[in-house]
Structures are given as C-alpha cells and as structure tokens.
Amino acid sequence: MRNFIILFNKEMKESLRNGKWIWLPIVMMVIGMMQPITSYYMPQILEMAGNLPEGAVIDIPTPSGEEVLIATLSQFGTIGTLLFVLALMNVISQERQTGAIVFVVVRPVRVFQYIVSKYVAQLFILLVAFAAGYLFTWYYTNFLFNYVPWILMLGSLGVYSLWIVLLTAVTLLFGTVLRNSGGIAGMSILFLAMLSLLTTLFPKYMEWSPSNLSTETSKILIEGEWGSSTLLVSVSTLTLSILFLGLAVYLFKKLVRFGN
C-alpha cells in the first residue's frame, strides 16, 4: 500500500507538471459545452449556411435537454475516447524508452503496485476531466433547454465512467506489450473500434459488450431507469477491465526487460 501511494503521488505530481491536469479537463469542458451551444443556435447556423430561398421556414424540433446530454456523451465516446487514449499512450512506454523505470524496478516494488498505481492515477485524472466536461454541459443544457434532473445526470455520468475505466485498462495493457507510442494508441483505438463494430454487427451475441454503455446511458436519460441490461453491461465492463489489468501485470512480468 505504501508503494502504491508513493507511486500514485509521483504520477499526480508528474501530471500536474506536464499540464495534463489542466489541459485535459479544459478540453473536455470545451467539447462538452459545444454541444448545447451548437444545438441551441442550430437554426441560425443552418440559415447562414444554407442559402435558403426567401421566406423558407426552417423547422427543426428543439431537442430536449436529455437529448443534448446524449449527444454530448456520444461526442465523448468518439473524440473523447481518442483524446484519452492519446493522453495515456506514453504512460508506461515513456519510462521504458528513457530507462527511468529502472530506478523504480531496482527497488522493492511489485509489478502489480507499479501497474495499478499508474492505472488508478490516470483513471482518476480522466474521470475528473470527464466529470468536469459533463457537469459543465449539464449546466448549459439546463440553462438553454430544460432542466435534466440531477439524479439522471449523475446516473448517466456513473455508467458512462465505466467506459473510461475500460479504455484506461486497454491502453495500459497495450502500453506494457508495445514500446512505440503510436502503436499503443493505434492498437487501443483499433481494439475499441472493433468492439463497437462487432456490437453493432452482432447485437444478439454482444449484449454484454461495453460498447452498449452508451445505449444504457441513453436509456437512463430518456426513460429514467436502469434495468438488468445496465447491470449486465456494467459488470462485464468492470470484469473485462480487471482482466485486462491482470493481463497487463502478467505480461509486464513476462515481457518487459530492462537490460541495455
């Protein structure tokens, strides 16, 4: 536990120094609030862009606040995922490439402590960034559209966080297997994209798929309920994440060499 805390603190300090603690939340806030604002001004934007004949009536139904939040989460699911994976790709590989990792592994530190401290620290940063973005969006949405009950917002936030729990585990796993940052990011994105693709192609067999988390959050926001499917997807996502982390620890012990 002591090692874990020391390593966790180091990770926090590093993320403060390199600015990750600042730029990531800001970017998530910008991406998030863009959604309600563009939705709100959509009629004007279309009018400007569209060269519509005089007197044409633009009739776009105004979305509900819930719909805006769903659209935001969908943005987070694509751009946000890409951003997060890129923000994580150097987490282990850089220390390996420079060799600084040697100073950690020559001390009585277990691989498990090393990987899990990185995991928890990075996940913490990403979750804070995500929550900041989402809360900001919620505030705007309430203001511009209609009030979305905080319990629904919180529920969708919680369920969606599981996606981040998974993507962090996936990126760290590739981070232990591969050395090259580009490869790590590429493989992680590929893996997550394949998961989504398979889920759309074979919905019957993929009910457990973490990609369904977005459907679950929509359900929570629109219908205000979470059922057994939410539980299934949540549990499977958590299980997969733990599995990937375990695999990362195993492969680190097996593959990672510090010599020369």
Binding site: I6, E14, T98, A100, V102, F103, R107, P108
Partner: peptide
C-alpha cells in the same frame, strides 16, 4: 547510462527513491 525523470528536481527524485526503498 542512467536516465531520470527529467521533470523532477534532484531533491524530489532522491525523496522518491528513498521512499520507494522504505
């Protein structure tokens, strides 16, 4: 060929190393 965490100061690095060595 030692390479360090470049963002740390010497003192911070030694503090970190010492803590890890209990």
């Amino acid at each position: 060929h030692p390479t360090f965490f470049n963002w740390m100061t010497a003192q911070e690095f030694l503090q970190f190393a010492g803590e890890l060595s209990h």
